[in-house]
Simulated scan of single mutants.
Amino acid sequence: MPKTIKKIGVLTSGGDSPGMNAAIRSVVRTCAYHQVECVGIYRGYQGLIEGEFQPMNARSVKDIINKGGTILKSARSKDFMTPEGRKRAFDNLVAQNIDALVTIGGDGTFTGAIVFNQEYDFPVMGIPGTIDNDIFGTTHTLGFDTALNTVVDAIDKIRDTASSHNRLFFIEVMGRDVGHIALNTGIAGGAEEILIPEEDLGLDRLVESLNKSRKSGKSSSIVIVAEGDKIGKNIFQLKDYVDENMEGYDVRVSVLGHMQRGGSPSCFDRVLASRMGVKAVESLLEGKTNYMVGLLNSVMELTPLEKAIKGKSKINLELLRVSDIMST
């Protein structure tokens, strides 16, 4: 028989993403609804080790659903990677009478939760919070939709300048291992070319594609580049190559960087976070552990944490085809 859950801790870890606050709010209020105590843990696993705990109730999370970032702060913890650090974390949880943990973050966060569960048989539940959308077991991670809207808004503004000056812009977006942000925003922003880690376009084909666009009457172009794209060493090398192999373009680079992580979460991310928080808490109360909550076919489902981090989120092949057609 699973032990009765009377108090749940919640933390955010790794890179922040829009929707984390909405998820914290959902966890806290779901606990209140079920008359379970909730404790906020500041600075992720590092705060867990250092005992940075704060009791939370339904009023503790008012007016945060619309805010980006995370009120619980976030940090990467080298100490938690050691057995000694995890022992201190466990002792602190026991001292606070905390029975289960909700962790909000990405694959590093979930890896830590898996190890902790294996060592101490401590109930854990994961909520995927990362703008890259690179977690298996959910069609959308928290922050992905908001990041898309942020990037599209930036592309629209850059296109104004590109069109006014007949410029070619390389715009780098986040996506170290997957190209979800680049592919979706490239289509939505009307990009002439999209470079992602999953598809090796090649430098020669890139120049060929840009020349084709210019011959079709386009006087300016936008190329969206995922940071993990393998064509060149970096986006500036791409610029130099095009400068050397194409005439008539004034080539510029814009790296959007961490602005993609910030900002007020979209309606979609607020609703998603609210659903995920409810599912996470109620799953723990049902005796489930070592799972991640995710959105699959519009339904909240559970995926084993290990499968979530070892599985590979796949690029939508239909979107690749749509991109090819739209860039004609």
Rank of each mutant, 00 (worst) to 15 (best):
L284P: 02
L320A: 00
A100Q: 08
L210K: 04
I309A: 02
G14S: 04
A58T: 02
D121W: 06
R88P: 02
E282Q: 14
V281K: 02
M292H: 04
T4I: 15
G68Q: 04
R159Y: 02
F169A: 08
R88N: 07
D132P: 10
E244W: 07
R167D: 08
V223C: 12
V27I: 09
T103I: 08
Y120W: 07
F90T: 06
F170D: 09
D160C: 00
M20C: 01
T109S: 15
I181H: 08
M174D: 11
S219K: 15
L72N: 04
S221P: 09
A89W: 01
D132W: 12
I104Q: 01
A75D: 11
D269K: 03
G129Q: 03
K279R: 12
K157L: 04
E193H: 13
N290K: 08
V271C: 01
N133Q: 09
G9T: 10
V178K: 12
G217F: 11
S298N: 07
I194W: 08
T12V: 07
K6E: 12
T103P: 05
L296K: 15
D153Y: 09
R88D: 02
M1V: 14
V207R: 10
N245E: 09
D156Q: 00
M292F: 02
G262W: 02
V28T: 03
C267D: 07
L142H: 00
